[in-house]
Measured scan of single mutants.
Amino acid sequence: KKVLATKVLGTVKWFNVRNGYGFINRNDTKEDVFVHQTAIKKNNPRKYLRSVGDGETVEFDVVEGEKGAEAANVTGPDGVPVEGSR
């Protein structure tokens, strides 16, 4: 997949743990970017399912997906594990 941007910060708009996807709002362009649970690189080690929490700040790369921009290599800021869904 073509990389459109790297090390982008954003805020998780919503994430559905059961369906394994959601959207992140980019801090720079204010665009919403699709995020799938497989894109989460560093999950909260205390959680079994990969997820990001609503309102959580995350860092990610933006790649060209089949339906437009999507997140890849999702971590917390500066590469720490994500907090995950509460």
Rank of each mutant, 00 (worst) to 15 (best):
E31K: 05
G68K: 02
G10S: 03
T29K: 04
V62N: 02
V82M: 12
A71I: 04
K2D: 04
D78L: 12
V35F: 15
E31R: 03
V58C: 05
T57V: 14
K1D: 07
G68E: 04
V33F: 00
R86M: 13
V80E: 12
Y21Q: 04
A72S: 09
G76F: 15
G76L: 15
K7Y: 00
V58F: 02
R50W: 10
V33Q: 02
P81H: 12
A69Y: 13
P77R: 11
I40Y: 05
V3P: 05
W14D: 07
K42F: 13
T6Q: 10
H36W: 00
E31T: 08
T29Y: 00
G22M: 02
K30G: 15
V74S: 02
T6G: 06
V17M: 11
G55V: 04
T75W: 05
F60I: 03
K41T: 13
G79D: 09
V17G: 08
Y21H: 06
S51N: 09
V8Q: 05
L4N: 06
E56S: 10
D61P: 01
H36K: 07
K67M: 08
F34V: 06
D61V: 00
P77L: 14
E83P: 11
E64F: 08
T38L: 06
R18L: 07
P45T: 13
R26T: 02
N73W: 01
S85Y: 10
K67Y: 09
G84M: 11
G55W: 07
D32V: 01
I24F: 05
G20N: 07
E83M: 13
R18Y: 08
T75S: 09
N25W: 04
P81L: 11
V63S: 01
P77F: 14
R86F: 08
Y48C: 14
T29E: 02
K47T: 13
L4H: 06
P81D: 13
G79N: 11
K30A: 08
W14Q: 07
D54C: 15
A69F: 09
D28C: 00
W14R: 01
N27H: 14
A72P: 00
T29A: 01
R26K: 02
D78F: 10
K30H: 12
T6M: 07
A5L: 03
G84H: 10
Y48M: 13
T11S: 06
K2H: 03
V62F: 00
T29Q: 03
K42H: 15
P77V: 14
K42A: 14
G53D: 11
T6W: 06
F23P: 03
R50H: 10
K1L: 05
R50T: 12
A39I: 01
K41L: 12
G68I: 02
H36M: 03
R18F: 08
V3F: 07
V58T: 02
V17S: 12
V12Q: 00
A5Y: 04
N25V: 15
F34L: 05
P77E: 07
F23D: 05
V58R: 01
K7T: 02
T75A: 07
N19A: 15
G22W: 01
T38R: 10
V74H: 03
L49F: 12
K2L: 01
K2Y: 00
G22C: 01
D28K: 03
T57F: 09
A5W: 06
D61T: 01
V52P: 06
A71Y: 02
N19L: 15
A71D: 05
F15K: 02
N43E: 10
T75V: 08
D28Y: 00
N25F: 06
N27T: 07
R86H: 15
T6Y: 09
A71V: 02
S85G: 14
V17R: 13
E66A: 12
L4G: 01
T11Y: 06
N73H: 05
K1S: 03
R50F: 09
R46V: 10
V82T: 11
T11A: 05
N73V: 00
V35P: 01
L49N: 12
K30N: 10
L9Y: 07
N25K: 13
V74M: 00
E56C: 11
V82Y: 10
K1W: 06
G20L: 08
G22Q: 02
A71P: 02
F15L: 03
G76Y: 15
V63T: 04
N25M: 11
E31A: 05
D78E: 13
N43H: 13
K13M: 06
D32L: 02
E59A: 09
E31L: 01
Y48T: 14
V82W: 09
G22N: 03
D54V: 15
D78A: 12
T75H: 13
G68R: 05
W14G: 04
V3D: 04
V62T: 00
T38A: 08
S51G: 12
F15T: 04
K30E: 07
G84L: 12
F23C: 07
N73C: 05
G84T: 11
E64D: 08
V3H: 03
K41I: 13
R50P: 11
H36T: 07
R46W: 10
D61S: 01
G10I: 00
Y48D: 15
G79K: 11
K42Q: 15
D54P: 15
V8R: 00
F60T: 00
T11C: 07
R18P: 05
T38K: 12
R46T: 12
W14S: 07
E64K: 09
E64L: 14
G65S: 08
A69H: 09
E31H: 03
V12K: 00
V82C: 12
V35N: 03
G76K: 15
F60A: 04
A39M: 07
N44W: 11
V62K: 04
Y21D: 05
V52Q: 04
D78K: 13
K41P: 06
V35T: 04
V8S: 03
R46L: 12
Q37F: 15
Y48F: 11
T38D: 08
N73L: 01
N44D: 11
L49H: 10
N19S: 13
V74G: 02
G10E: 03
V74R: 01
E59P: 00
R46I: 11
N27V: 06
R18V: 08
A39R: 03
N27Y: 07
K1G: 08
F23S: 04
P77T: 12
K47F: 10
K13Q: 06
V3I: 12
N44M: 12
W14K: 05
G10F: 00
K42E: 12
K67Q: 11
T57K: 09
G10H: 00
V12A: 02
E56N: 09
T75N: 04
E64R: 08
V8I: 10
V12W: 11
R50I: 10
I24C: 00
A71T: 01
K41A: 12
E31F: 00
V63N: 01
V52W: 12
I40T: 02
K13I: 07
R18S: 09
D28S: 01
V3E: 04
A39C: 04
V35S: 03
N27W: 13
G84R: 11
R50A: 13
G53H: 13
Y48N: 15
P45L: 12
N27C: 08
F34Q: 05
P81E: 13
T57S: 09
G20E: 04
K7L: 03
E70Y: 14
E31D: 08
E70W: 05
K13C: 05
A71M: 00
A71F: 00
K67D: 07
I40M: 07
G53P: 09
R86N: 13
V8N: 02
V80S: 13
G68P: 05
A39S: 09
V17Y: 11
L49M: 12
L9Q: 15
T29S: 06
I40N: 04
G10K: 04
F15E: 05
V62A: 01
G22H: 05
R86A: 13
W14V: 04
T38N: 10
V62E: 03
R18E: 10
K2R: 10
V52A: 06
L49Y: 11
S85K: 14
N19R: 15
N19K: 15
K13A: 06
R86Q: 12
T75R: 13
R26D: 02
Y21R: 04
T29L: 02
G53L: 15
F23L: 07
V8K: 01
L9K: 14
D28F: 01
K30V: 02
D32M: 02
D32Y: 00
D54M: 15
F15P: 03
F60Y: 04
V3S: 06
V17C: 12
G84N: 09
N25H: 08
K67G: 08
D54E: 15
F34K: 06
V12S: 01
G10T: 03
V12E: 01
N27F: 09
N16K: 02
L49C: 11
K2W: 00
N16L: 06
T6K: 14
G79Q: 11
V35Q: 03
Q37C: 15
S85V: 14
V33N: 01
E83G: 15
V8L: 05
S51R: 11
Y21C: 05
T29N: 08
N27L: 09
E31C: 04
T57R: 08
T29V: 01
A69N: 08
Y48P: 15
E66F: 08
Y48Q: 13
Y21T: 06
G55N: 08
L4S: 06
E31I: 03
A72F: 06
N25Q: 15
L4M: 06
V35E: 03
G22K: 04
I40Q: 03
A39H: 05
V58N: 00
